Amino acid sequence: MIPFNKPFLTGKETHYIYDAVNSGKISGNGKYTQKCQKFFEETYGFKKSLLTTSCTDALEMAAMLANIEPGDEVIVPSFTFVSTAIAFVRQGAKVVFADSYENNPNIDADKIEALITAKTKAIVPVHYAGVACDMDKIMELAHKYNLLVIEDAAQAIDSYYTGKDGIKRALGSIGHLAAFSFHETKNIISGEGGMLTINDDRFVSRAEIVWEKGTNRAEFFRGEVNKYGWVDTGSSFLPSEIIAAFLWAQIENLALIQDKRKFLHDCYYQNIIANELVKLPLLPNYASNNGHMFYIEMPSIEHRNILIAKLKENGYNAVFHYISLHSSPYYYHKHDGRVLSNSDKFTDCLLRLPLFYELEEKDAINISKCVNAAFDVK
């Protein structure tokens, strides 16, 4: 059985982990943490990068930095992973769910303004599949209503947005704050892991304090203060040096990994025949493709189940996600009752095909043929 995902190891992970352990500094914010953070800042133009133990932690840090409080409202797409919403729910906020585009799982930027009230504090666009949301429209709304934008860029490492000004910007560098994931299903990995990026000067110094359990310990270690103490809220968001060492081996091979993943994505796109039963993913003209995933859209949950079974019969494991958060057991009774038909459609109809570094071209072609044959498409 060809799995949906298989973590790729470069061969240097254990070498760097050994080096980190042998250094005697394994608790975090050591050599490898700083190397990783410097790479992301210099490569993608993030003002400040902080590694975290997960993308969920990065989002929770963002919620703290945004001073989200009970009574605040935060606009979040319904078609996303639970972490996007729960980070703000934990702060006491009311999550206001937004629908997807009809032809794209991303948040429909044209429907956001109608959801803004005097209580709205932030907008959280999710760059699904590493494909950019319409950030010009979202940032214009944020400026108009004095809102914060927190990019959920969990799937969007090494992906870009080209604005109306013609400038190409890395996802995660546009909003005031952004969160990335290095979970084993992502392009580059550390098992579990994440990163908060800070692009607004107002949050830079405080972010480091929140990151370090509410203390100014990082300033102390840099020699900027002669002692450190508890100065703000925070938590234990800083990952161990072992996680950072693992991630560094992946970063060194980022270009290689990206080339292969994008090649496999293109292979699917060129070999799967779009028809009335199978829709291929849409890439807006302002977005780039980072090869994070390849998905197709079926006309119904029944058609999707048929295709999953056909693929499994041929030794291929395809998966689906997410269940719309507005209809989840935890939150449906708090939802305002609006029908989010596009989000529900993607819940029932979206299917993800295997895509990982070690997948071979012939496998992607054979999976494509299986998709085509499932409904007698020639």
Rank of each mutant, 00 (worst) to 15 (best):
L51V: 14
K164T: 15
T84I: 09
I257G: 01
T347I: 02
H15T: 11
G28S: 07
G191C: 03
L59I: 03
G291L: 05
E69W: 00
V21C: 06
K213P: 00
S54W: 07
S235K: 05
E358Q: 02
I2M: 11
G194C: 09
A87Q: 11
R206W: 14
Q258T: 11
N216E: 02
G30L: 11
E13A: 02
W211G: 03
G194T: 12
P239R: 02
T117S: 15
Y161A: 05
V76R: 10
S173K: 15
S235G: 09
G71K: 00
K48A: 12
N226E: 14
N187C: 11
G45P: 08
S343G: 13
K279V: 03
I86E: 14
E208G: 13
I174C: 13
G30C: 01
T43I: 09
D232N: 07
G291K: 01
P70R: 02
I174G: 06
N289W: 06
K47Y: 11
A118L: 14
W230H: 13
H183E: 10
L115R: 05
L359D: 06
V278R: 13
A154I: 09
A249G: 12
S27A: 14
F8L: 10
T215C: 04
I243S: 14
K111G: 04
M135R: 07
D266L: 03
I116W: 01
S83C: 06
I86W: 12
S235A: 07
K6M: 11
V95G: 01
K144A: 09
P239V: 05
C267M: 02
E276S: 09
E151W: 01
P284H: 06
D57M: 14
I273E: 12
L353G: 09
S54K: 09
V76T: 11
G28K: 07
A129Y: 08
T84E: 08
I272L: 05
A318L: 04
F263Q: 14
L256Y: 10
I2C: 09
S324Q: 10
L325M: 08
F356D: 08
Y286G: 04
Q258C: 09
P105Y: 06
N275V: 04
A287T: 10
A154Y: 01
H15N: 00
L147G: 03
A114D: 13
S288Q: 10
E69K: 10
H143D: 15
H15C: 05
